[in-house]
Each structure stands twice: as structure tokens, then as C-alpha cells.
Amino acid sequence: MKRVLSILLITMMALTCIGAEDTSDISIPNYSMGSQIFTFRFGPEVPTFMYRPSLSPTWLTFSDTHFKVGGYGSLSYQGFLSSHLAIGGELGYLFDYDQSELFTSVPLLAKLTYIPFQGTFELPLSISMGFAYNSYDESSYLSLFTSAEVGLSYFFTESWGFTLSGGLQVIPEIYFDDKADQTTYTGFMPITLAISYRTN
């Protein structure tokens, strides 16, 4: 994990240097209603926990979940409602291997982002909610999907920038009656590097 983080940071720093010569021309934008931002991101996904209210042990963490490290990628679009608040949608793809099979989740999310600090460096705080189509072996399940993330963005031109972000995604898999004891809330921690394009 340390290696992955190091690679992401080094990549970000390198890209920062590439864009550095243009920074004198950057005019720091202040978002306003109607501003837009497009983002493509990807990165590793760390299985964090499984919470099983009716099973013992109730909590499984990291490798005890039997998930290995996977990945998450997404495309998102957001429009600004005000100078600090953007709303939009995100289509993602999450994958993770357990001991032998592949688990995938395709979330479609409504995303709300608050950006308290703006300019060359930004600090986007996002919450997302929607549903996801989950598949594993021969099973499939349409679930809710929630996410909370914090990022650090650097815009190396007026329009283009990178964001390193991390957070927590939770997929509740809820059952009733005979399978109620298999109800499980699973958390994943995505650590992603994004490239963003913004217009005012």
C-alpha cells in the first residue's frame, strides 16, 4: 500500500513540475453557478470492513474480509450551484478479488461536492449516494452505494488539474426472512488519482 501511495504522490509531483512553467499565467477562478467540472479517476481500492449484525464475528477488517486489494475508476460530471457547491453524477467501476473469484460493482451515483478553498490548490469534500449493480460468481445484487471522500487538487492550468483523493465507500447488502443473517455492510477505501477539466 505504501508503494502505491508513493507512486501516486511521485506521479502527482512530476506532473506538477511539468505544468509549473505555465503557472504564472493561471488566473485563479472563482466558481459560480453554471461552472462545470469533468473528472476521470482511477486507483487502488482497499477493502476496509464488513459489518455483519447477525453473524459472528460481527466485524471483519482488511484481509479478514477475504477481499484482496482491488481498484476503482470513475467518470463524473458536476455543475456548480454556487461558488462552493457542485452537484452532479458519477459512474464508477469497482473490482476486487477474493480468494479466487472476482467481485465487481458498477455504481451510478448522485454526487455533492463542497470546495471550501479554491484556486491552484483546492480541497474538494464529496458525498455520493446512489445504487450499484454488484456481481460475484453467479450472484448479482442491486444495492445502495454511499461514499464520502476528501481530496487535494492542483490545477496546473486554468482548466486542467489533478486530484488525489481518498475516502470510504459503503455497500449495504440487506436481506430479510431466511437470509436476514447474511445482511452485510461492506466498506472500501478508494485512493484515486483524478484528472479534471473545469469550465467557468
Binding site: 479466487s100 453467479e138 450472484s139 444495492s143 437470509k179
Partner: peptide
Amino acid sequence: LFGIILLTVGCNLDYDGIFYQVSISEET
């Protein structure tokens, strides 16, 4: 409509819960 989709597709009637299956999966 979303609720209907969740109830019909989300049920996973024929198999054990996905995350339950993962938690008991055995190494290849």
C-alpha cells in the same frame, strides 16, 4: 421505479449473499 428495481433485482434469491460468500471463500 427505483424501489421496484431494488426489490426485484436486489433480492439475489437463488444464492447466498454476495459478501457472505466472499467472507467464507476459500483460497484457490
